[in-house]
Nucleic acid binder design. Structure first.
Length: 293
DNA sequence: ACTGTACCCTGTAGGC
DNA sequence: TGCCTACAGGGTACAG
C-alpha cells in the first residue's frame, strides 16, 4: 500500500498526536507481524516520551527518550488509526479512521493523554523493530538504502553513476531501494511516464560512455521529484479501500496517468496512445508505448 | 554479481 | 450463491 508519499502522509498525520507525548503502555495482540516483535517490546516502549517521528525510505521512525528508535514498515496493507475517547480521529489524509477491523488491529500504543494509536495490517507484511538511535544508520535495514528522491542526493549525476553499465531495465532499477529509497510500483510507473521514458529501456542508457548523465537522466530526475511532491500534496494514493473505511483517504489515484489504467487513453496532452501493462520482476508496470521511449 | 521466481498472508474481484 | 483463480501499494530467500 504505502510508498514514499503515503508513508510521508502517515508521518505528518501521526506526528501531532504522538510527538511530545508519553507512551503509557504498548498493547501487542499477536506474536509477530512479518517478523517477531522486538525482545522485551512492552518494557522498552513503556514510559518513553516520543521525541520525534520521521521517515526514511518507506520506514517510519519514532525517536524515543531512552535513546532507542522504533522503526516501522507498513508492508502492503499497514495503516494507523488515531482513536480518542473510543472515537476514531482523522488528522491526516492517509491516517484512517477504520475502527471496523479489530481482527487485524495488531498493536495499540496507549498514550498518557488518552489517545490510542492503532496499527492495523491484514496481510502482516509490515514489521516493527527497535534499535539504538546511534546504531540506526549502520543497521542492516538502513545501511544499503539509496538516496532519498526528495533530497539533494537525487541528481542526474547520481543516477547516471548508479545506472552505468547496468543491464536491468529502468523499472527494475527505480524499484531497487539500494538505488533510490522510497519509490514503489505506482510511482515508478508514474515517474517514467512523466519523463517520457520506457520502463523497458536499459538502465545503462542513463549514462554516456564516460558515465556522465544523458539527456534522459536529466528528464528522469525532476519527473520523479514532481510526481512525489504532487502525490504528497494530494495526501498519497488510496487503492482498493476497505468497504467499511469511513476515514479520509488520499486523492492522488485520481491523477494517475498510467497506473492501473490498462487500455485506457494516455493522459499526456496530444498523445493518442493507449496504456499497456507488462510485468517486470513479477510486478505489473503500466506505460504508454506511444510517448514513452 | 546479477536475475528471475517463489514465497510470506489475507482479502477482493471476476469468470464460470 | 459458491468455487476457483489471479492479483494486490512490500521485501527477502533462493536457484540458476
Amino acid at each position: 500500500m504505502p510508498e514514499l508519499p503515503e508513508v510521508e502522509t502517515v508521518c505528518r498525520g501521526l506526528a501531532p498526536a504522538v510527538v511530545g507525548g508519553r507512551i503509557e503502555r504498548i498493547e501487542i495482540r499477536r506474536a509477530n507481524l512479518r517478523f517477531p516483535f522486538p525482545e522485551q517490546f512492552e518494557a522498552r516502549m513503556q514510559a518513553q516520551t516520543v521525541h520525534s517521528l520521521s521517515r526514511r525510505a518507506k520506514y517510519l521512525i519514532m525517536g524515543l527518550s531512552g535513546g532507542e528508535d522504533l522503526v516501522m514498515h507498513l508492508g502492503m496493507t499497514g495503516r494507523f488509526t488515531i482513536v480518542r475517547d473510543g472515537v476514531p480521529d482523522t488528522p491526516g489524509d492517509y491516517v484512517y479512521a477504520t475502527g471496523a477491523d479489530p481482527k487485524h488491529d495488531h498493536v495499540v500504543l496507549h498514550l498518557s493523554d488518552g489517545a490510542q494509536i492503532v496499527y492495523n495490517d491484514p496481510r502482516r507484511f509490515g514489521f516493527m523493530v527497535m534499535m539504538a538511535h546511534e546504531a540506526r544508520d549502520a543497521h542492516a535495514l538502513f545501511r544499503n538504502l539509496g538516496t532519498e528522491p526528495l533530497g539533494n542526493g537525487w541528481s542526474a549525476d547520481y543516477i547516471a553513476t548508479r545506472a552505468r553499465g547496468k543491464t536491468v531495465n529502468l523499472k527494475t532499477l527505480l524499484m531497487d531501494q539500494r538505488i533510490v529509497a522510497g519509490l514503489g510500483n505506482i510511482y515508478v510507473s508514474e515517474a517514467l511516464h512523466r519523463a517520457g521514458l520506457s520502463p523497458n529501456r536499459r538502465a545503462a542508457s542513463l549514462a554516456d560512455r564516460k558515465g556522465r548523465p544523458t539527456e534522459r537522466a536529466h528528464r528522469l530526475v525532476p519527473a520523479v521529484r514532481e510526481v512525489l511532491h504532487q502525490a504528497i500534496a494530494a495526501g498519497g494514493s488510496t487503492l482498493r479501500d476497505y468497504r467499511h473505511a469511513d476515514g479520509s483517504s488520499g486523492a492522488f489515484q485520481e491523477a494517475f496517468a498510467v497506473y492501473d489504467r490498462l487500455d485506457e487513453p494516455c493522459r499526456r496532452t496530444g498523445c493518442a496512445g493507449t496504456v499497456r501493462r507488462v510485468v517486470h520482476s513479477g510486478r505489473a508496470t503500466y506505460y504508454c508505448g506511444a510517448c514513452q521511449r
